[in-house]
Design a protein around this nucleic acid. Structure first.
Lengths: 171, 171
DNA sequence: CATTTTAATCAGGTCCCCCTGACTAAAATT
DNA sequence: AATTTTAGTCAGGGGGACCTGATTAAAATG
């Protein structure tokens, strides 16, 4: 039986981390806001960028299926990304119904940034990094189980997608 | 010089945690979605709820100042919360320009939920919880410094706000 | 008492995520 | 060749976070 106070402490720190990290990169982006604005992450446009980083040249339909989004939502995000010069659209030559989406160089860079090691990890020792990794592995495992319980159908698809996105870090 | 691979591993796990925890509570909310839908967090409506949980009966202006939001944004969020029966508005009797915002019981509950110890922490041992707390303390410290560098003005106000929200966990 | 400051409100806007419905063009099937 | 399926598009909508500008009502102040 783990100590409830310790749980509370950790929970508090997590909340704090949430709040602080959020405002931190909000400020970071507002400062050297050359022209871009919004952070993007694992939703909407960001989701698509990440998916393409791992698997360039997908069609909109494929993107929609993998990210389980409506095709129309996907189209919207893709169009926004096109406007920002992060991806390109081009008709498939083998099947002219399909539109192939590809990252531009800028898009690839942007995606890579999301995947960068955050500066705050550099302040940690090897031991701490190992501990953190071990702990997060447990936590994530727990969360996968929650997801599986809530929606077994979606769960496996989701795990694949995540694994896909994370491949870079583990192979 | 900490091992870069270890940093990458930890970074990957953090990303994973981000993605997984996000979809996890998205699913959680979609399942027993009686009528409510969206998780709210530390922005917009959620921000206000949290502020009130720590300090009930603030005026809109005070809320706006503390959360540094435009008064109009604050009004918008408050109105949305009123519609959801999470807060009430009432004119101050001492200064009839002011509108006092108070949590309803439901609002208090909702705010408490945000502050609940997440289930996934229960799977950790005391040692792991201590480690996690220690590590997050370091990380948060790092982020505070970043914020301070980006905007020294905002920094102190922000730290106060955070401390305010977290008071429950540490006192 | 007249003016200024203060707390709110209304109006309107920007951008984000995401969905359903209706419709077209190009493949696949019958 | 005619029909159906498939990939996209357009139109429109709902909700969210925020903001600026203009205006009103009630205090504070000269």
């Amino acid at each position: 039986m783990p100590n409830l106070d310790k749980q509370k402490n950790a929970a508090g720190k997590l909340i704090e981390f949430d709040m602080v990290s959020h405002t931190a990169d909000e400020l970071a982006h507002r400062n050297h806001a050359d022209k871009d604005e919004h952070p993007l992450r694992f939703q909407g446009q960001g989701k698509i960028l990440l998916a393409l980083a791992q698997n360039n040249g997908l069609s909109q339909k494929e993107l929609a299926t993998r990210l389980n989004l409506a095709v129309q939502s996907t189209a919207e995000f893709v169009n926004k990304l096109v406007k920002k010069d992060l991806v390109t659209k081009e008709k498939s030559s083998t099947d002219r119904r399909k539109t192939i989406i590809r990252l531009t160089d800028l898009g690839r860079e942007t995606a890579a940034e999301t995947a960068k090691v955050p500066a705050y990890l550099e302040g940690l020792s090897d031991t701490e990094l190992d501990q953190l990794t071990a702990i997060l592995t447990k936590i994530n495992q727990h969360l996968y189980e929650d997801i599986d319980q809530a929606s077994p159908t979606y769960s496996s698809k989701f795990q694949e997608t995540v694994a896909d996105h994370l491949r870079d870090w583990f192979m």
